[in-house]
Design a protein around this nucleic acid. Structure first.
Length: 423
DNA sequence: CTTAGGG
DNA sequence: CCCTAAG
């Protein structure tokens, strides 16, 4: 208020006294207008004020303006500010001690309706309308005026439509006041339910609950709905993201697991096809497809199926070529040290599967059937060829003889050393 | 702990 | 991939 400073500089006592007089006049007039029901909206609130101030200023212009050196517009602004703020602050001080601040009322659509409703709410001393309801209404009102997100978030039990739909007639206010109350009574257990469900889910180490900062009108309905309905979609969506590198426990319902496995198989097939395409020329694409593991509810039941990439298969083949079949731990240390998964047992199983695939491929080649099994089709022919060679050179212990007979020393390049001893 | 083998 | 027996 620099103008006030100007006033005080000129003559503090006179200025203060004159200001008080002006404010008092404004307040009295405004109150009389309001109580007479003439003020019903923001337009009505400001219009009489300005009209009055115009007259006041005109009147003042002869005496006070000359004295204080104030222009008409300055005085007009000064008085109008006080007119708008103080009268409302006074009312708010009575009705809503904490809900209002001066100046927030500028966008109010229906002042009279709001005040009338407030008065009605105050009249009802039933326990149903507790102080929180009143306060929340006040906050809601203010939020509506300010369009402030933070305020709206704080006011959780409020429906914006009801506020904007409030109309001056007192008869309709019972409906307006009853609707939020019933909703509130219904929503309270909802919140508890949300907490409980979220705790339950957290205890099952499943999904996290997102805090919704949405400021929409019906946001109060969202948490419960999302908490229940979103679980299915969100669970599948969450597993698509790699959690921690250690693949800590995430549990999924069995149905979800199955479906996702199917989806992953398709996706990985596409990836493998691409890799096979690349593999023709490129050496080793560094691609450990980060597929999250799956665990069962009781703990580490089953890792999610991590599909073997072509590069992994090649690494495995190289390892087998170098160390021989059966020394899976060594192969794992040398070739799969980077990947935490792929235990030696996994390598062994994969090798077994590779041999099986190779055998099936040979069989299908013999029968000359065009239909290939989809499971091993994405494997490039070079890989299968090498598997075949290694299968001949290092026959699987179960099928062939003992492995020591064929792999006495780690032959670095087993390309030509394969005699057709045992298929 | 590692490996082989069945499921 | 999981589980287990055997070394």
């Amino acid at each position: 208020m620099e103008r006030k400073g100007v006033l005080y500089n000129i003559d503090s006592s006179i200025a203060a006294k004159r200001e008080e007089e002006i404010n008092q006049e404004v307040l009295d007039l405004k109150r009389s207008h309001f109580e007479a029901g003439k003020i019903q909206a923001q337009n009505d609130l400001s219009a009489p004020c300005e009209d009055y101030l115009l007259g006041l200023v005109v009147q003042e212009s002869q005496s006070q303006n000359a004295m204080f050196g104030l222009t008409n517009s300055e005085l007009h602004d000064l008085s109008r500010d006080k007119c708008e703020s103080q009268i409302l602050v006074e009312y708010n001080a009575v009705k809503f001690p904490t809900a209002f601040t001066p100046g927030d009322i500028s966008n109010v659509d229906d002042v009279a309706g709001f005040f009338a409703e407030a008065a009605y709410s105050e009249k009802m001393n039933e326990s149903v309308i507790d102080h929180s309801a009143l306060t929340s209404k006040g906050f809601s009102f203010m939020s509506n005026a300010m369009q402030n997100e933070g305020q709206i978030v704080n006011c959780e039990i409020f429906d914006m439509h009801e506020s904007s739909a409030i109309s001056p007639p007192v008869t309709s206010q019972t409906m307006n006041i009853d609707a939020p109350l019933t909703k509130k009574r219904l929503r309270k257990p909802t919140r508890r339910y949300i907490d409980e469900s979220s705790d339950l889910n957290a205890r099952r180490s499943r999904k996290r609950e997102e805090v919704s900062t949405c400021a929409s009108a019906s946001k109060d309905k969202f948490p419960r709905v999302r908490c229940q309905k979103k679980s299915r979609a969100e669970s599948t969506e969450m597993e698509l993201f790699p959690e921690e590198s250690s693949c800590k426990a995430i549990q999924v319902p069995f149905a979800s697991l199955v479906n996702e496995e199917c989806d992953k198989r398709h996706a990985s097939n596409a990836i493998q096809v691409m890799k096979a395409h690349k593999e023709a020329t490129v050496v080793n694409p560094k691609d450990d497809a980060t597929v999250p593991k799956k665990f069962d509810q009781d703990g580490v039941r089953r890792k999610h199926h991590r599909l073997w990439t072509v590069s992994e298969v090649r690494k495995l083949i190289d390892g087998v070529a170098q160390y021989g079949v059966g020394r899976w731990s060594h192969i794992k240390k040398l070739y799969f040290s980077s990947s935490a998964h792929r235990t030696p047992v996994d390598l062994k199983d994969k090798w077994r599967n590779l041999l099986k695939a190779c055998y099936l491929q040979k069989q299908s080649k013999i029968t000359e059937k065009g239909k290939h099994n989809l499971s091993w089709r994405p494997l490039p022919k070079s890989v299968l060829h090498r598997v075949n060679e290694l299968a001949n050179m290092h026959p699987y212990p179960r099928n062939g003889r003992c492995k020591s007979s064929v792999s006495p020393c780690s032959s670095s390049s087993p390309l030509h050393t394969n005699r057709s001893n045992i298929q």
